[in-house]
Nucleic acid binder design. Structure first.
Lengths: 349, 349
DNA sequence: TAGAATAGATAAAACCTTTTACCGAATCGA
DNA sequence: TCGATTCGGTAAAAGGTTTTATCTATTCTA
């Protein structure tokens, strides 16, 4: 691993009998002031030496790093999560198309305590930041001053005035409720994720909204925390059905928990959708391949990621002042929901 | 977004009536040459001004970027894949512990054609590179010269002499074959992933090795490509059983395809494991929550990622010269494998 | 008290670009 | 032929660090 010294613009200048400036001008195509002969001489020297400008020096000079940061929360192996993966894919693709590179950071307590999130800007690591998996407890978002381009992706933070791009989770809740009610369900259980996530609150609001309008309530006895995980979803479903065997349908705050719920229901001898319907939210790739294939609300996660990245770039280049966008969602009907069986239909209990 | 000028070391020097050098010396704790009084004066100015050294300037000076690159292949939404996610989690965690940050790049054809992978080093983006999801077709790996720290993660490349950290896939194949044979299976199908991946070849070699030793062959008729996806796994399982209904067990090159295979088998009325046993490889988190829970080979992916990152850092700091490591794998028995039913046991066909 | 040693601080070079301001030579108009 | 353009090119500053070599007091030794 012997580091041979990197070739710099000086070497090119010497090799081509031109000045530093001339080389730089040629390379950056600054107005056509350089003669054809000189240009070719420089270019051939560049080729010969294999010269490539140092991005460190360029960034230092231009005061732009060319990096975008992605900040994800600390979860069990954060990046192994399909939801974050999808967002990150979208962001990196969009960034690459615009000649930006992506830096990945995990906002664990130690990280925040040491103000590493602020260092990101202060020490010129990045030109803009995308925050994923944010909750209402993430007060560190308040630290970012107005002149730091920051966008919250697929979420909002109650009480903090930040730019965001999100899906319409209130509408998602309404669609799920409407679907189940139209099938004839009356006693519907709800498995929720972390309540400190704003979109989770939106989802529930939309869901309850429709239920209330139809005079169907959502008592806390039909509500369980599924911890956003498969295990949690399974446990929640079992708890719900044990407490209230009259439940004929379950709405789960995400697909992971929905898949867990189906597995939990099977464990206690319930068939899906014959005995209990299950509807999820997200439409992860895997949803199509469970047994039964999962009916769910499709949320355009990839598009949200791509859009957030694009708008962040606009923020950086001052093409935009403020970003607040909400994307439409839709129902994706598969095999995990059906009409309740006659005779068990709510009235039994 | 009015950018107020960032405070530099010069400002601190002025504010504290000291020279640039003194400030730098204080900040970097260079030998105790600075008097207590001066040190405090400087530190208080730093505090007052909120000064943080520019990492661009530091990197330019030190010729170390403080970044590690992760290069992943272009797949459908690469980062949404659990396998890559797990590796990336491990790498980012290890990097952060060592004060390195992670840059994410996707090696699509355009990227490689423009030699962006070489620019990574030449233009001082990164100090070292980790290549994920590499195949034997990835000749671009040959471009990296000896003085560029590069490690291939959980793979090798036939014919190219590169550093790597991997799981013992040959052993994984042997374990799977042994498990199925011990249960009494004779006609075993095999769903493979991309044949251009070296570890896939290792896996098959180990698998066939045991089969051959027991005088059980693996004819091509019992072999199908599952494309590494759930859909592919489902289609492959259906194809296998259609072609040879006597098959009583299937070994799948990864868990995703195994889960797809189970779903495919159900579609054609086969029960798992009653009619057909299925064993996977990887032990992804989800494997525990399928129906039935998947028997699989546990590969320590997270550890491989962490180890690869650690060794890359050793390479960078010249603590290591060359890296070649193979991690042990183990059998994780769940509910998707069982002894074949009497009377259908191979002899039928 | 002269000379040496030491403590404390600094000027300047180096890292590598881009950009501004300037200079000399050739060309042009009158 | 003189003055003004234009053309081709360059020196130098700026961007923010770290480090080396150097300088000036002060204290110590003989």
């Amino acid at each position: 691993m012997a580091k041979r010294k990197a070739v710099s613009i000086k070497d090119v200048a010497r090799e081509s009998n031109a000045s530093l400036t001339t080389v730089s001008l040629v390379l950056n195509n600054r107005d056509g002031r350089i003669s054809r002969a000189t240009r070719e001489r420089v270019l051939s020297a560049v080729e010969r030496l294999g010269y490539r400008p140092s991005r460190l020096a360029q960034s230092l000079q231009s005061q732009r790093s060319g990096f975008l940061g992605i900040l994800v929360p600390q979860l069990r192996h954060a990046f192994a999560d399909i939801y974050f993966g999808e967002l990150i894919s979208a962001i990196q693709e969009t960034a690459a198309e615009n000649d930006y590179k992506i830096i990945l950071d995990v906002a664990n307590p130690r990280y925040l305590e040491r103000n590493h999130h602020l260092e990101l800007f202060r020490r010129h690591y990045i030109d803009g930041l995308l925050c994923l998996g944010v909750t209402n407890n993430d007060t560190y978002l308040d630290d970012f001053s107005d002149d730091h381009p920051v966008i919250v992706v697929n979420n909002r933070v109650a009480g903090i005035d930040l730019d965001f791009v999100q899906c319409d989770y209130a509408e998602a809740g309404r669609i799920a409720a409407t679907h189940l009610c139209e099938l004839g369900h009356k006693k519907i259980g709800y498995i929720h994720g972390a309540t400190e996530v704003q979109t989770t609150a939106d989802l529930r609001d939309g869901f309850e909204d429709v239920l209330n309008r139809l005079k169907l309530s959502l008592p806390t006895s039909r509500t369980e925390d599924g911890l956003y995980t498969e295990e949690g979803g399974a446990a929640a479903a079992i708890a719900l059905l044990t407490r209230d065997p009259g439940i004929t349908a379950i709405f789960s705050g995400n697909d992971k928990m929905a898949i867990g719920a189906i597995s939990g229901l099977k464990q206690i001898g319930k068939r899906v959708p014959d005995d209990v319907s299950v509807i999820g939210c997200d439409d992860i790739h895997h949803a199509e391949f469970c047994d039964p294939p999962l009916t769910t609300i499709h949320t355009p996660i990839f598009e949200v990621g791509a859009r957030a990245c694009k708008l962040l770039l606009d923020l950086i280049s001052s093409k935009a002042e403020s970003v607040r966008e909400t994307q439409a969602v839709s129902l994706s009907v598969r095999k995990s929901t059906a009409a309740p069986r006659k005779g068990r239909n709510g009235a039994t209990q």
